[in-house]
Write a protein that binds this DNA or RNA. Structure first.
Length: 506
RNA sequence: GGUGCCAUCGCCAAGUGGUAAGGCAGUGGUCUGCAAAACCACCAUCCCCAGUUCAAAUCUGGGUGGCACCUCCA
């Protein structure tokens, strides 16, 4: 049982009904990393976008086969490998492992298949042979180029004509003389000294960029498959070329049936660039605010929207940049904390009350899952799902606060239901899967570190205050609270005792 | 220069023809020894101009202001 859905298809430039090749099943290919350096936030943003789509499809009842490639044969990798004297495929494998480890911190699920270029050379060569044989491609001195003129539909995805592209290309004098047409692109590159190579009918060489993403989906999903995804920046030339290569070989109705592209992450103020020294690695972000905060931030936005990302440089007295603050992620983490606080309270309440048995729950609590389903069927509208989660959280807190007027068992069942359903819906977005106590403890540890809180001193002051309050010495108690406030610590008196948190006001 | 996208409350952000989701912040209140948390209440007519329509944030034209791609940058 799957729920019908509509999604925005970049090719048709409109939301269209999604009809998978096989009912109930989705074959999905997403362009993965070209690993030659640690993954940065942009990589994470893309991976999270499509992981959310994948999870949402599963939530809607689809059986998803998710293929995300690793492009491990590529110019930048080879250059980097030569710089450090390492085998390029090995270097890529190392960074690909790092990438997957980083993505796991953002709750990105491992793909079902993670094909690499280096292990798909025969399939790539086979595809190029087919293109040469049918006249779509031509070899020149050990290189092989795709003849764009032979593919009239070229430019359809990016909305450009071959002529427009040709003028753009010659303007910048990127004409490589052996090409018949400046917009033609390489399928196979003859081996150069210091580069990895594989044998081929055209001599030793290696695949060009693009061809792997035509060969590998076919190998793992078939000649025609449902969804192809990637960042907006990949529309041209990467995806345009993939279409030309694949349909040039297999025919006009083959390859991806739906094209999905996620919006880009933009940096307010300074752009992310290596020269400015402000590339933000996944590792750095996950350590600073926790991986789930970034995930939460991502799903608060629609996957197709461009997102502004605030990064604030921290400067010392001499105006030297000594660090960065991810304000928007810190704020997202605060919102996320509210969910875990509520979940913690629900869990405690449910455990304490025992099994409330089967029976009715408040109607309001039954809405969350259907509403989430409805939102996700409309082009994966995660922000609307988030609004429903907020409403569920408020309902739960209301029930926790005032139980009066509600049947005791119904109240308990409703809260249990909310705790369960919030996690199910959160699962569709890749959030709320952690143990609340664990999350809350981790978060406090992060803040303690960021604000350099002396925990031993805090504990001592709180103990002193407990004593003061015990003897109704409220003046002294408030005095101590004043001291703690000055340290950046906030107190929470509860029937179970006094807890504390770090004042997180930016 | 070419192509495409966007402009919604102080901030973030949904909403593609039927009369503005949600969050943060703010204000008032409940609770509390006082607080904090939580809860309750309040809090926008959608960049500008012109048009289409019974009806537009949503469609068309123009303007202004942002952004992206055309450079193997996710």
């Amino acid at each position: 049982m799957t729920t019908p859905l509509r999604l925005y298809d970049s090719m048709r430039r409109d939301k269209v009904p999604f009809e998978p090749l096989e009912p109930g099943k989705v074959g999905m290919y997403v362009c993965g990393p070209t690993p030659y350096a640690p993954a940065h936030i942009g990589h994470a943003f893309s991976a999270i976008s499509f992981d959310t789509i994948r999870r949402s499809l599963a939530f809607l009842g689809y059986d998803v086969r998710y293929v995300r490639n690793v492009t491990d044969v590529e110019d930048k990798i080879i250059r980097r490998a030569n710089e450090v004297g390492e085998d390029s495929v090995a270097l890529a494998a190392r960074f690909a492992d790092d990438y997957n480890r980083d993505m796991a911190r953002f709750a990105v699920l491992p793909p079902d298949v993670e094909p690499k270029v280096s292990t798909h050379i025969p399939q790539i060569v086979e595809l190029i042979v087919k293109l040469v044989e049918n006249g779509s491609a031509y070899p020149v001195d050990g290189d092989v180029y795709f003849a764009v003129d032979k593919f009239p539909a070229y430019g359809r995805l990016s909305g450009m004509t071959i002529d427009e592209l040709r003028s753009g290309a010659s303007d910048r004098e990127l004409v490589e003389k052996q090409k018949k047409n400046p917009v033609d692109f390489a399928l196979w590159k003859a081996a150069k000294p210091g580069e990895p190579f594989w044998p081929s009918p055209w001599g030793n060489g290696r695949p060009g960029w693009h061809i792997e993403c035509s060969a590998m989906p076919v190998a793992h999903l078939g000649v025609t498959f449902d969804i192809h995804g990637g960042g907006k920046d990949l529309i041209f030339p990467h995806h345009e070329n993939e279409i030309a290569q694949s349909q040039g070989a297999y025919g006009p109705t083959t390859f991806a049936r739906y094209w999905m592209h996620n919006g880009f992450l933009n940096f307010a103020g300074e752009k992310m660039s290596k020269s400015l020294g402000n590339v933000f690695n996944c590792d750095e972000i996950a350590n600073a605010v926790g991986g789930e905060a970034l995930r939460f931030f991502c799903v608060e936005h629609h996957y197709r929207s461009p997102v502004e990302f605030d990064v604030e440089s921290v400067r010392d007295a001499s105006n030297e940049v000594v660090g960065v603050r991810f304000r928007s992620l810190e704020a997202a983490d605060r919102r996320l904390e509210d969910f875990y606080k509520t979940l913690a309270k629900i869990d405690a309440f449910v455990v304490q009350g025992g099994d409330a048995g089967e029976g009715t729950v408040l109607a309001e609590a039954e809405r969350l899952i259907p509403e989430a389903r409805e939102a996700l069927t409309d082009d994966f509208n995660a922000p609307v799902v988030m609004s429903k989660l907020h409403e569920a959280k408020t309902l739960a807190n209301r029930l926790l606060d005032i139980g009066k007027g509600t049947d005791k068992q119904v109240r308990r069942r409703t809260l249990a239901r909310l705790g369960k359903d919030m996690r199910i819906v959160g699962g569709a977005l890749g959030i709320l899967a952690n143990d609340p106590a664990r999350y809350l403890a981790d978060r406090r540890d992060r803040l303690v570190r960021r604000c350099a809180i002396d925990v031993a001193r805090v504990t001592q002051l709180i103990a002193d205050r407990v004593t003061a309050r015990g003897s109704k010495d409220f003046t002294r108690a408030d005095e101590i609270r004043g001291e703690l406030t000055a340290l950046g610590v906030e107190l929470h008196d509860t029937p179970q005792g006094t807890d504390w948190s770090v004042q997180d006001v930016g």
